[in-house]
């Protein structure tokens, strides 16, 4: 049994105080940590339910990125002549490596956007740090990610591409992907509680976002300069660039990577504070 809420002002005698909070509040990540088991169980629930409900189950997690890759290859590479920007890397592997990161991000946004509203019965009946909900929605996507990653390895083996030594840095870029996904998810999930039409905007947002991320084209197509900086403001540009560098040995984005990282961290911090500020009204509004 946990001690309920550490965020109230503790007074003498071991009392915890609940009263109206005004303005910005502390993040209180220590409390979040004390609820890690709940996070584990909610993530576990999301994963369990998804693979139980889907008729195709795991097959779906394999088919979806694979078929998307086929369509991209046919349409963009064969018909529109988009190249991977690197003669060693066939477009199939190139687009799949982009999709690997992209689908994790897109899935996280889609699931977490409606996560608070979808769990309204929990929000109105039990106390826990509300951050747990979008966080578990993001983390649940890691299972699909691992499945996709295995497919990528098979694909690379089929095309005779050996992983490079940079692969050891891949976990860092996975972390950047998680940070980026969580950052945007916090904003969207909180906004969707307050403005219920946000959930209709999310699919559209995800669609547009993919085209400004280098999933189907190499980022080097964009010339260095202001435009390249603008593209790098999108954290996913950094994530995908990092994935391709680590896995396929493509050119490292260089200092543009720092722009993406800074943006991801800024979005995450902003998202965390905004979420914490808004969470006190969730139970009344949801």
């Amino acid at each position: 049994m946990r001690r309920s809420g550490t965020e109230g002002v503790s007074t003498a005698g071991g009392f915890v105080v609940y009263e109206r909070r005004r303005g910005w509040v502390a993040l209180d990540l220590r409390e979040l940590w004390s609820y890690r088991e709940l996070l584990y169980f909610l993530t576990w629930r999301d994963i369990l339910v998804r693979y139980k409900q889907a008729v195709l189950g795991v097959a779906w997690a394999v088919l979806q990125p694979f078929l998307t890759m086929i369509v991209f290859t046919v349409v963009f590479n064969r018909l529109l002549n988009v190249e991977s920007g690197d003669s060693r890397v066939p477009y199939e592997v190139f687009s799949f490596s982009g999709l690997l990161a992209w689908q994790f991000f897109a899935g996280a946004l889609t699931r977490s956007g409606v996560s608070l509203v979808g769990n309204s019965n929990l929000l109105t009946k039990v106390y826990f740090p509300r951050l747990v909900i979008p966080l578990s929605a993001v983390l649940a996507g890691l299972v699909d990610f691992v499945i996709s990653f295995v497919i990528l390895l098979v694909l690379m083996a089929a095309y005779g591409i050996a992983p490079t030594w940079q692969t050891v840095f891949l976990p860092l870029f996975v972390l950047l992907a998680i940070v980026s996904a969580l950052a945007v998810s916090l904003w969207l999930s909180a906004l969707n509680v307050l403005y219920r039409d946000v959930q209709y905007v999310i699919p559209f947002l995800v669609q547009l976002w993919m085209f400004v991320s280098p999933v189907i084209y190499p980022i080097d197509e964009i010339q260095a300069g202001a435009l390249r900086i603008a593209f790098s403001l999108n954290p996913m540009t950094g994530v995908i660039g990092g994935f391709r560098w680590a896995l396929l040995g493509q050119q490292f984005p260089g200092r543009y990577m720092w722009i993406s990282i800074a943006m991801a961290v800024a979005l995450l911090l902003g998202g965390l504070f905004y979420f914490r500020r808004m969470e006190r009204v969730f139970a009344d509004v949801v």
């Binding site: 049994m1 809420g5 005698g13 915890v16 105080v17 609940y18 009263e19 109206r20 106390y127």
Partner: peptide, 16 residues
């Protein structure tokens, strides 16, 4: 239960 916060006043509570 700390699910929603009061508009005015306060709660002091001790224990799990």
């Amino acid at each position: 239960s700390h699910i929603t916060e009061p508009t005015e006043g306060r709660v002091e509570i001790r224990g799990r």
